[in-house]
């Protein structure tokens, strides 16, 4: 980064504002449109709403199952997040502290598993889950979300535990803690911020996911937000106002969580390939 003259800096600032407006235009227009009626959306040539109103939001809140979808999304994304974080902290600790050939091979295998196309997994698992009566249950989706996050979460925790000195555990052991205690009571509390960041990543992935939920959840009362909005889009393709209000409401949790983790994003992007 080179320091420049104020004039140059502020013209760069202007250019940056322009770029953000153009690139984020789909999001900006979505938000602005959600505050006007479908009739106005279809007739107006201006971007700014003439008479902003919350009528679309009222419609989505009162006349659709949006909050049911939101609840389903929270349960499944939250469940997938909790289980994957639990399993990945344990696995990350093993990969960090026990450097034998077996565990090194496991780490490589985890990386390869990420390349696996999700559709190839979905076909046999749909048949298996149907036999086990797991279609149209939260469990089928939670287990898929859990495993989808395991490789990334495990490699992040492993890298994080690598940075925690072994001396701390040895000191705890001298004080009489067993190995599980020295992990759970000494190492894990230090990993708090890292766990929170990876947990939010895991949650966001599952909250945004469409395909897995669409395959395993065929009953309307179980739909997640992406599946629910997709159905709405198919059935009421001309009701742009409600559709856009629902999309903005769906985006809100993503925005809020993203603001918490955006400073970890740099690290995440290098740490491994996260998302498609």
């Amino acid at each position: 980064m080179l320091t420049q003259k104020p004039l140059v800096r502020w013209s760069l600032f202007g250019l940056a504002c322009l770029l953000v407006i153009v690139i984020d235009m789909p999001i900006i227009s979505l938000i602005l449109n959600s505050f006007r009626s479908t009739a106005e959306i279809l007739s107006s040539t201006s971007l700014i709403p003439a008479a902003p109103s919350l009528v679309n939001y009222a419609y989505v809140a009162q006349r659709t199952s949006f909050f049911q979808y939101l609840l389903n999304s929270l349960i499944m994304a939250g469940g997938g997040m909790a289980v994957s974080i639990l399993a990945a902290t344990l696995a990350g600790y093993v990969l960090s502290r026990f450097r034998t050939r077996v565990f090194r091979a496991y780490g490589t295998g985890l990386f390869l598993v990420q390349m696996f196309p999700v559709l190839l997994a979905l076909i046999p698992l749909f048949i298996l889950f149907r036999k086990l009566n797991l279609i149209n249950t939260y469990y089928s989706v939670i287990i898929m979300y859990t495993v989808a996050q395991l490789p990334f979460a495990t490699s992040m925790f492993r890298a994080f535990f690598d940075g925690i000195p072994h001396d701390l555990e040895e000191a705890a052991r001298i004080d009489g803690a067993n190995r599980l205690q020295s992990f759970a009571l000494v190492v894990l509390p230090l990993a708090g911020p890292a766990i929170a960041a990876v947990a939010i990543f895991a949650f966001l992935f599952s909250y945004n996911e469409y395909l897995i939920a669409a395959v395993f959840l065929r009953r309307e009362s179980l739909f997640t937000i992406p599946v629910g909005i997709q159905q709405f889009m198919q059935q009421y393709s001309t009701d742009w106002g409600s559709l856009m209000a629902a999309a903005v409401m769906a985006m809100l949790p993503t925005f809020v969580l993203f603001l918490f983790i955006q400073k970890y994003m740099m690290y995440g992007a290098i740490g491994s390939g996260v998302k498609g």
Binding site: F13, L30, M244
Partner: peptide, 27 residues
Amino acid sequence: MDIPARGFFRVALLLPWIIPSIVSVVS
């Protein structure tokens, strides 16, 4: 480059990636 409020622009330009696919498709 050395731009004022660089952190804000970085976040704003990441938005297309973090929003749910269904939301980007609707817009």
